[in-house]
Simulated assay, not measured.
Amino acid sequence: MAKCDACGTTILFGGKRMGDQRYCNDTCAGQGVLLNRVRQIPDGDVVAFANQVHSGNCPKCSGQGPVDVRDSYQVWSAILFTRWKSTPHILCRRCGVKAQAGDLAISAVAGWWGFPWGLLMTPVQVGRNIWSMAVAHNPNQPSDALLRQARLILAQRSLQDGRSQG
C-alpha cells in the first residue's frame, strides 16, 4: 500500500500524485511542495538567516536578543474532551518565558477537567513548560530548532516569491 509522502498515512484509495510523490489529500500535497522546497534551500543560506534572526531584536518586544525558538505547551480539557499542543515561538528569552508561563497557567487551570487524558497530560505539559522556562539556550549560536524554523521560513518565502512572479 502507498504512504503519503507528507504525513505518512496509508493511502487506500485515490490520493493525489505530483511527479513521483503521492499524497493523501490536497493539504498534504501543499505540504509536499513545501517539503520539496525545504530540501532545495542551501545550508549556508539557512545558517546565515538563522544567525541574522538570532542576533536580531525580538519580533514581539523589539528588545535585544538573542532570539531563538522557545516552545510553550498547553492542555485544555472538558469532561471527555482534551486538547494539547506545543507551540514554537521565535522570541527573546523574556518573551519566551512569558509565553510559557501563560500556557502553564492555562494548563494548570483548564487542563485537569478531562478524563483520562486531562489528568495524564496536564502534569506533562506543566512540567514541560517549567523545564523550558528553566533551561537557557546557548546565547552564542542558534539552536537546531531555530535552524529548522529558518529553513521552513526561507522555503515558504521562496514559494511565495515564485507565486508572485508567476
Rank of each mutant, 00 (worst) to 15 (best):
G162Q: 13
L91V: 06
A110H: 00
Q141Y: 04
S107C: 03
A134G: 02
A108G: 03
A99Q: 04
L154M: 14
D5P: 04
L146Y: 09
C24N: 08
G8E: 11
V38F: 09
V33I: 14
A105T: 05
N57S: 10
V75R: 03
D71N: 11
Q160P: 01
I11T: 09
D20R: 08
A110I: 00
R93K: 10
R93C: 09
N129D: 06
P123M: 03
N25P: 10
S77G: 12
V47N: 09
S86I: 11
R37E: 15
R148M: 10
Q156P: 04
G111E: 00
V75F: 08
Q31E: 15
N129K: 01
Q31M: 13
Y23I: 11
L104M: 04
P123T: 03
N57P: 04
P139N: 06
A101G: 02
P42Q: 04
A48I: 04
R128G: 00
G19M: 06
N140A: 07
I79W: 14
A136W: 03
S62V: 07
V135A: 06
D71T: 12
N138Q: 03
W76I: 14
G65T: 12
H89E: 08
K16I: 15
G96A: 02
T82M: 06
S55N: 14
A48W: 04
A108T: 02
C92I: 07
C95A: 05
S143F: 10
C61A: 07
I130P: 00
L119H: 02
I41L: 02
L120Y: 02
A29E: 09
A110M: 01
P116I: 00
P116V: 01
V38G: 01
Q31P: 02
N129W: 05
W76D: 13
L34K: 10
Q74I: 15
Q149A: 12
A136V: 02
K3V: 12
S72C: 10
Q141H: 05
G19Y: 10
L80T: 09
L80Q: 07
P123W: 00
A136Q: 07
Q149C: 10
A29Q: 07
T122H: 00
L91K: 02
S86F: 06
G32E: 04
R94S: 10
I130T: 03
G63H: 13
R94V: 11
W117I: 00
Q165C: 05
W117F: 11
G111W: 00
Q156R: 14
L146F: 07
Q160H: 12
G102P: 00
